[in-house]
């Protein structure tokens, strides 16, 4: 039996309405770093919504992931300003050094590498967000130092 209380404590923060589904799923994502299958099942029970509907949302919205993510999330901003100022080089460097493709997780479960379409801090392009920390004007030659520092913390 899975412990459903961990899901209920999140579900209970919201109104029993389909309007709350996306917000609950986002909170699952934040708490567990992915949307667990048991969570979908529990949400379906409580909200009386078919599992298939919640699953569809899980696959549609980019912010949600149905597979576990790494301990740290590296988001490379690939908005237009960042693209022009070197985001592709940063992304390639990370893919090469961490031996992981975009949207993948390293084999040791440390890092998930994601791309995000603009975090709205274009004046600081190119930008990388590691966990919730923003790193502006990042350079491809410096990005691994930043990542290593984060891994140690």
């Amino acid at each position: 039996m899975t412990d459903v209380t961990q899901f209920d404590s999140i579900i209970d923060r919201y109104e029993r309405s389909e309007e709350s589904l996306l917000a609950i799923l986002q909170d699952f994502q934040r708490e567990f770093h992915y949307v667990p299958e048991e969570g979908i099942r529990r949400l379906s029970e409580v909200m009386e919504v078919p599992e298939s509907k919640i699953y569809a949302m899980g696959t549609f919205y980019k912010a949600l992931s149905l597979t576990p993510r790494g301990r740290h999330t590296i988001k490379v901003c690939t908005g237009t300003a960042c693209h022009l100022k070197g985001a592709p080089q940063i992304l390639e460097t990370l893919e090469r050094e961490l031996e992981v493709k975009r949207n993948g997780t390293t084999t040791d479960g440390e890092f998930t590498l994601e791309c995000v379409n603009c975090v709205g801090a274009c004046a600081m392009a190119p930008l990388t967000v590691i966990d919730e920390e923003y790193h502006g004007q990042t350079r491809s030659s410096k990005i691994m130092d930043i990542v290593k520092k984060r891994a140690e913390s």
Partner: peptide, 27 residues
Amino acid sequence: IKISRGGGAFVCGESSALMRSVAGEVG
């Protein structure tokens, strides 16, 4: 006023997709 947080889908900026997303559906 209620707040509805988006799920990282660009197409949800389109009005009809946005309204579906607010209602708790795929946008």
